[in-house]
């Protein structure tokens, strides 16, 4: 690799890394506060308000959350929804995006118009609820997987990624007798791994955060995903039930402030852990080279 080693270039490198480093620092400080807070004692949080490192280490918040007997079950539900849902999303989105990326397709425009129209207009919560109910999906996990199976936004962008692939590759594959599914599987998908990884992440995060549709479509609380549980814990820690003077009117004391923060840590962690594994797909130009070679 030929390297550009002029003074201006090096100065730019220094400035660039300083700027990005500062930006990263600004964005991460509040998360450190949340992390620190989740391990802090109530006394320290109440007295100092803002801390970046707890002087006294406490696991009380995590003990409180993990004492919930249904935590593991709802975590399981969420993992299932995330894996199965993302798989469905990616398969259906790619299947639809590829034909739309092909300019020789008849009716391409009206179909795209139909997709884009749904981004602007929607029937709203109640009519969608009724459709889900009529399909018999109430209380079934299908109600969390199918109503959002394709995001129009993601579809349009994946389509445009597909369109940008060098056309020559497809042409030569076709001349060699490859069928359309063959081209999609062997050429388009491998070449679009950065995009597939990106949109898998987008979809997965969406499933991970499933909350509203679960409350709406699932009556059986045993099937609730983890976000429902975590939000209930947050409400509890805000003394939410106190306003209604319910539970243990006699001696109810809301759990520690740190619980709220621990909830955030728990609900963010898995996604953060997954990210670095996806990152390797963003490595510049690697795939293109390998396929061509």
């Amino acid at each position: 690799m030929v390297r550009d080693r002029t003074f201006g270039s090096r100065l730019f490198d220094v400035l660039n890394i300083t700027f990005l480093g500062l930006f990263a620092l600004i964005t991460i400080v509040p998360f450190i506060y949340i992390m620190a807070g989740s391990f802090a004692t109530q006394k320290e949080l109440l007295e100092k308000g803002f801390i970046l490192f707890p002087t006294e280490f406490s696991l009380e918040a995590y003990n409180f959350i993990f004492s919930t007997s249904t935590l593991m079950r709802s975590m399981g539900v969420t993992i299932f929804i995330t894996v199965a849902g993302t798989l469905i999303n990616i398969v259906l989105t790619c299947l639809m995006a590829y034909p739309l990326a092909r300019k020789d397709l008849d009716f391409r425009k009206p179909i795209q118009l139909m997709v884009i129209f749904t981004m602007l207009f929607s029937g709203g919560m109640i009519p969608t609820f009724i459709v889900v109910k009529e399909l018999g999906m109430i209380d079934s996990y299908w109600s969390l997987l199918l109503p959002g199976a394709i995001s129009a936004f993601n579809l349009i962008i994946i389509r445009s990624f597909f369109q940008q692939l060098p056309e020559g590759l497809e042409e030569s594959a076709k001349i060699d007798g490859a069928s359309d599914p063959g081209i999609l599987m062997r050429i388009v998908i491998p070449l679009s791994m950065p995009a597939i990884a990106t949109f898998s992440l987008f979809y997965a995060v969406g499933h991970w955060n499933t909350f509203f549709s679960a409350v709406l479509y699932i009556n059986d609380a045993a099937k609730w995903p983890i976000q429902v549980l975590l939000r209930q814990i947050v409400i509890l820690s805000q003394g939410g039930s106190l306003g209604d003077t319910t539970a243990f009117e006699s001696d109810f004391v809301p759990p520690e402030q740190s619980v709220k923060m621990a909830v955030i840590v728990i609900s963010t962690m898995p996604i953060l852990v997954v990210y670095p594994f996806l990152q390797k797909h963003f490595a510049k130009g690697v795939l293109l080279g390998s396929v061509k070679g």
């Binding site: 259906l92 139909m114 997709v115 749904t118 207009f121 929607s122 029937g123 709203g124 109640i126 009519p127 969608t128 009724i130 459709v131 399909l135 199918l146 109503p147 199976a149 394709i150 129009a152």
Partner: peptide, 13 residues
């Protein structure tokens, strides 16, 4: 998918 989950409920508009 789009017809079932997006256009059928569209009467809500």
């Amino acid at each position: 998918y789009f017809i079932l989950f997006k256009y059928v409920p569209m009467y809500g508009v």
